[in-house]
Design a binder for these strands. Structure first.
Lengths: 364, 364
DNA sequence: GTGAAAGCGCTAACAA
DNA sequence: TTGTTAGCGCTTTCAC
């Protein structure tokens, strides 16, 4: 019923496919566009009588304001854009959801973009967001930190800042001092140190780090934490064994399978993230070994399904949604001209069933 | 280097925070805004000499066009909006990724919104997209199909259609005949029938459907398929046992645990989706039972981590990303005035290790 | 080939 | 209290 009224009425008293404008509303209400605008945008006192007349006309015409026209005259609109590698990765999805939720809570529009890991698309996205007039751009995820990166991101920051927008880097470093960018990240090193310590406390001495990604800031920090924990337990630097298989389930499975074929002189695996851990668990099971009886495994991120792995995975919880929320919160409360700052979010271990004491020494 | 040039130059020769416009570019290039516009929007032949001069000026000023102004004069811009319940659900995330990918491939901008399951936010989102001038709105996910739903969605469809935009419904029914909306969905009934048949072929006769959601079109179709398969195998209607626990890991775990406490006269569980299956597996393990030796379990959707469950889950593969891609493809190739149509995507079973023959009959 | 001018839909002075 | 007017930044006739 509601729909037929609206739909047919539109169709009958206006040209085909012409969007109804504020002019139409004003005309129907018998007022000027200015008056119509005043009641429709609601930031000006208008007497009740005219008010209702305009509102009624707008409703009858099913009027919606043209956001572009508004943005054009009002100087941009409240929009935040998040860019992630892919939304199908649980970690990124949670960050995006956090951003979206916090943005929505403040009445901001949120746009999610994906790069698939290509710096080129990142550049295009930032450019696009400048065109769209996004007031806040959030770039998520670890990166290879080299001069190219620094130059590129510094450029984003300057450009965005020049038009009054703000750049927030999540889990990636600021490109340099005095660059107008905010940074929010987890203390990856501390998290890695803690979970490596957990493995060491259980008695493990030969622990492999699976899923390194040289140059990637997030992974490098985890590797650093891993090495630091080893050192704290007075193990020599050679005790560290990092396999650079990169992230992803597939990589983890392949690298683990290969490693098991070559050597088995390790009793625990620290996977770079939970997806790598999933792959590793699969490979270990396929090799006929049991977790944690034969090999202990830990992951990183505590994705929702980590509790459903076989066995349930002991991992480091990184509150991804909180990261997203915090990114927009910080950006919204930081004045435009304040110095760039860096915020670090804590993490903690979630103990489940993938860690046990190492098996008794096998005779070689 | 690159960044200091840009940043400082902007800062020195223009008022603070004034976005550079086409006027600035024209001025610097020594041409009129009309000429600048012609080369910048690139849809008009301009001699090479002036062309380069304008381009050089634009680059020097780091000019980006104002998308709002463009949209205002050009009549909207290529933007597709997808609305899902939540991006952190693997299924929805894949649909969103499919939409995003296909949109990007066509040079369209993609905006992802989430409802958290609230119809109210759906309404707000559609309204917002009308304001933003989205030319394509995609609503994803099963719904309770009642008169309220039909009225609401019919209204969206009419309104969107009136301004030349298109509505695509993914996995939810059209609100009625002659409503301008496209529908793309999976054949849930066939998928459910097939996997129930798989269970029946393995010898199961007492199969519980866990995770019903009465009124929800997607789940109802699966339940229908489940009943149909039972009937095909000449089982009486009473053989069907549907537990309406709703979707989600938590619900699945709770319902399964409770069911196991009450009765154990079933040998297999058909979970409404993989997340429910994850919860069910957890509850079964906690009850000291084994899958598939004691109870067989199947899921629905084949999320990426289904292979990492304990045991790897036999489930129905629904190509979610393809659903998203297809939604935009269909919308882009369907002319505005063509009749509303419905497209059905096929699904298939993925056999893994969570199904076995039922255990030998226990004496009661 | 290029410029001047009109106008997209809206808001915000400025008048009345 | 309300209407008139001047743009926001851009594209696009229409002249020259």
């Amino acid at each position: 019923m509601a729909y037929t009224a609206t739909g047919l009425e539109n169709r009958s008293d206006m040209a085909a496919n012409r969007r109804v404008t504020i002019r139409d509303v004003a005309e129907r209400a018998g007022v000027s566009v200015a008056t119509a605008s005043r009641v429709l945008s609601g930031n000006y006192a208008v007497p009740q009588a005219t008010r209702t007349r305009v509102l009624r006309a707008a409703q009858a015409l099913d009027y919606v304001a043209n956001a572009h026209a508004r943005a054009l005259v009002g100087g941009g609109r409240k929009m935040v854009a998040v860019l992630v590698r892919q939304v199908t990765s649980p970690f990124y999805a949670h960050v995006a959801e956090g951003v979206e939720a916090e943005a929505a809570a403040h009445g901001w529009l949120c746009l999610v973009g994906t790069t698939g890991g290509e710096p080129q698309r990142e550049l295009e996205f930032v450019q696009l967001m400048r065109e769209e007039g996004a007031r806040l751009v959030i770039l998520v995820g670890g990166v290879v930190e080299d001069d190219t990166y620094r130059g590129r991101v510094a450029q984003y920051a300057q450009a965005l800042n020049a038009s009054g927008a703000r750049l927030v880097l999540c889990g990636r470093p600021a490109p340099g001092p005095d660059i107008p960018a905010l940074v929010v990240e987890f203390d990856n090193e501390a998290g890695a140190r803690a979970i490596t310590g957990h493995l060491l406390s259980a008695g493990h001495r030969r622990i492999v780090f699976l899923g390194g990604l040289p140059g990637n800031t997030a992974l490098d920090a985890r590797v650093a934490g891993y090495r630091a924990a080893l050192a704290e337990h007075r193990l020599p630097p050679e005790a560290a064994h990092v396999i650079d298989s990169g992230l992803g389930r597939e990589g983890g499975e392949r690298a683990m399978a290969e490693l098991l074929k070559r050597r088995r002189d390790f009793t625990a695996v620290f996977a770079g993230d939970d997806m790598v851990a999933a792959g590793a668990l699969r490979a270990i099971a396929d090799a006929g070994l049991r977790v944690p009886d034969d090999i202990s495994v830990v992951g990183y991120n505590d994705i929702p399904l980590a509790a459903d792995f076989n066995p349930p995975l002991t991992t480091v919880r990184t509150p991804a949604e909180e990261l997203g929320r915090e990114a927009v919160r910080i950006a919204l409360r930081t004045p435009q001209d304040s110095p760039s700052s860096r915020h670090v979010l804590g993490t903690h271990i979630v103990v489940r069933e993938s860690v046990a004491a190492p098996p008794p020494e096998r005779t070689p």
